[in-house]
Amino acid sequence: MFDTLHDRLAATFRDLRGKGRLSDADIDATAREIRVALLEADVALPVVKAFIAAVKERARGAEVSQALNPAQQVVKIVNDELVRILGGETRRLRFAKNPPTVVMLAGLQGAGKTTLAGKLALWLREQGHQPLLVAADLQRPNAVNQLQVVGERAGVSVYAPEPGNGVGDPVAVARGSLEHARAKQYDVVVVDTAGRLGIDADLMQQAADIRDAVQPDEVLFVLDAMIGQDAVVTAQAFLDGVGFDGVVLTKLDGDARGGAALSVAQLTGRSVMFASNGEKLQDFDVFHPERMASRILGMGDVLTLIEQAEKT
């Protein structure tokens, strides 16, 4: 489908073999190829520009490698920079000193929040926690039923005092869930919220109201890995509207390159914490920056080659 970045870089560097040194012209030519590769991976344009500038900077100062040819050397710099941004400060879920710990999920429509709620619940339960799922999406048709089914599959309780489908106040439900959790000794509360658009001021305010009602320890922004250039606009809107502490990338079992991971990490400084990679509740993992970097570049095998080249 797409030419890999490595193929393109190899072509760029064909004339350079044996030269072993990166000139400004080489770096510019390479930068153009990397730009295309990142754009085809759906990295947002402003992020691509900033990223390329940073890579050029590093490439200029780079020592000429003995082990790597120029193409490999640039790819390595690109990869290292990607991992650096994606990695951010890798951190685990923060638990409250006084339980319950509150985790609130927010994101666009259809991103995978409700499914993630089930995955988180199962994951937490397996670690010995007593999670409670909270049905605070009272808008989408049968979102409450969906969460109940998901909760049942995960073997956890669901707090769903309102039927939904337009009936009930999500802020009140969220608030009520804390009392319920304290009374019944649940130590983690996961609040599922309705999908909303960044430009929907009313619903963004509602999300902020839910946040204020439950004072979450973690607000997780749930993002579909297939998203394109809109990722930065949406991430910024959620950051401004409700704020978030971490990102969860969903539908990574697809074949999208997932450049959004880079866009959002670079723009917001929040790291991707979890990866959702399937429709089943077990399809869930902590996030691995190195895997994501290879995926965005579309060249996992090449990086292995570089590692081997460096070792020998």
């Binding site: 489908m1 085809e40 991976a41 759906d42 666009l108 429509q109 658009l197 960044g198 430009i199 579909d224 297939m226 998203i227 394109g228 250039q229 809109d230 990722a231 606009v233 949406t234 809107a237 697809g254 074949d255 999208a256 390159r257 450049g259 959004a260």
Partner: peptide, 30 residues
């Protein structure tokens, strides 16, 4: 909101079930 993967989606679905039309949703967003 779908990025470049949308083209891959369209290709594969068209191959499997002969798509006759596209519905582009969520255009009320950014």
């Amino acid at each position: 909101t779908t990025g470049q993967n949308g083209l891959v989606q369209a290709r594969v679905f068209a191959e499997v079930v002969e798509v006759t039309g596209i519905v582009l949703t969520k255009l009320d967003g950014t």
